[in-house]
């Protein structure tokens, strides 16, 4: 049951990529923090992260954890979004061989993992190479 509640608590970030922007210095935190580590301010504005970015770096998982075995090989990388925020995510809908650093990606809502055959379905953001 623990994973159900934890996943639910993280909906704002996993579903909508909601971040916290410091009202004083403007630094953006994802996930949100209570205290800005730049200026010590405690007041934040809720902002939604950008839906596009570029691949800063990535690695290919060829020996996956049990929940992800059917997806191997798959890539996980750090995406720098157009608003300057960098965050870690899976890169999907591609052959890992077609990926390169600096490649433009967009964010899509995807199924991230499932809790076995009978548990909850967990959704969130993933990166998809921009092919336009």
């Amino acid at each position: 049951m623990g994973i159900t509640a934890r996943n639910w608590r993280e909906y704002p970030q996993r579903y909508r990529m909601e971040a916290a922007k410091c009202n004083k210095c403007g630094k953006i935190f994802f996930p949100p923090r209570l205290v800005c580590n730049e200026c010590g301010n405690r007041e934040f504005e809720q902002v939604k992260l950008a839906g596009e970015g570029k691949l800063k770096t990535f690695t290919v998982i060829r020996v996956a954890p049990s929940n992800f075995i059917d997806e191997q090989p798959y890539a996980v990388g750090i995406v720098e979004l157009t608003d300057g925020v960098s965050t870690l995510m899976q890169i999907t809908d591609c052959d890992p061989d077609e990926l390169s650093i600096g490649m433009r990606v967009k964010i899509e809502f995807r199924k991230v993992q499932t809790e076995g055959d009978a548990g909850i379905l967990m959704y969130g953001y993933k990166a998809v190479p921009l092919r336009e």
Binding site: E71, T92, E108, K111, L121, Y123
Partner: peptide
């Protein structure tokens, strides 16, 4: 559909 796509993910992207 890709393995990480279902009616819900397709609906979210279409609605976006």
């Amino acid at each position: 559909p890709a393995p990480d796509q279902d009616t819900i993910t397709l609906s979210v992207e279409a609605t976006k």
